[in-house]
């Protein structure tokens, strides 16, 4: 990592990597849907936003997260503002957890993440169904919620490795 510190540009790119990945994922809607597993999907932006707001909020600009939400709405075809609200809410919950946590515990974070995404997905579904009269399949939401929760722990390990590199 000393190479990064010597080369400031590379370090900057490395520190901005989560946001770059977030933008790529919202533009590309990264969720492995092409695997053709029935109902399988997960919300990668939720994982990345929750993790980095919790662990590395200094490099994770909320305004850029907000814009990522706007882009996601455009890509998916949802009314403007829905994903932004979801992302900012995740940031808020994650920020709250960071404020009240003295000794971080991965399992607690994990289940708190489940609570947060369930709440946000419910809110999403309610807004889309009641206000915008969208026909949505609840099963997709539940499965998406479940896999997002399940894969959080896996991505946490990868992101920990990244943070280790950044802090060193």
């Amino acid at each position: 990592m000393t190479i990064f510190h010597k080369r400031k540009f590379l370090f900057r790119i490395y520190s901005w990597l989560p946001l770059i990945i977030l933008y790529v994922s919202v533009l590309n809607e990264f969720d492995f849907n092409y695997l053709d597993i029935e109902y399988f999907s997960f919300n990668f932006p939720f994982i990345i936003i929750f993790y980095f707001t919790l662990k590395d909020s200094l490099h994770f600009d909320y305004l850029l997260v907000f814009f990522a939400g706007l882009i996601n709405d455009v890509v998916i075809g949802f009314p403007l503002g829905i994903s932004s609200l979801s992302y900012v809410l995740i940031c808020s919950f994650s920020s709250y957890l960071r404020s009240i946590t003295i000794r971080p515990n991965i399992i607690k974070d994990w289940f708190y993440f489940l609570f947060v995404i369930s709440l946000i997905n419910s809110l999403n579904y309610t807004i889309l169904f009641l206000i915008f009269s969208y026909e949505l399949n609840l099963t997709f939401y539940l499965v998406n919620n479940f896999f997002t929760f399940l894969l959080y722990i896996l991505f946490t390990q990868i992101f920990n490795y990244y943070l280790k590199g950044l802090n060193e």
């Binding site: 909020s57 200094l58 490099h59 600009d61 909320y62 305004l63 907000f66 939400g69 706007l70 009314p79 403007l80 503002g81 829905i82 932004s84 609200l85 900012v88 809410l89 940031c91 808020s92 920020s95 807004i127 206000i131 915008f132």
Partner: peptide, 21 residues
């Protein structure tokens, strides 16, 4: 490094959703 507070962004999102509706 944050330029806006989360509350501002939350309110902005809600305003956008309302205007979209």
């Amino acid at each position: 490094k944050q330029k806006f507070s989360l509350l501002t962004l939350l309110l902005l999102s809600i305003i956008i959703i309302v205007l979209s509706s």
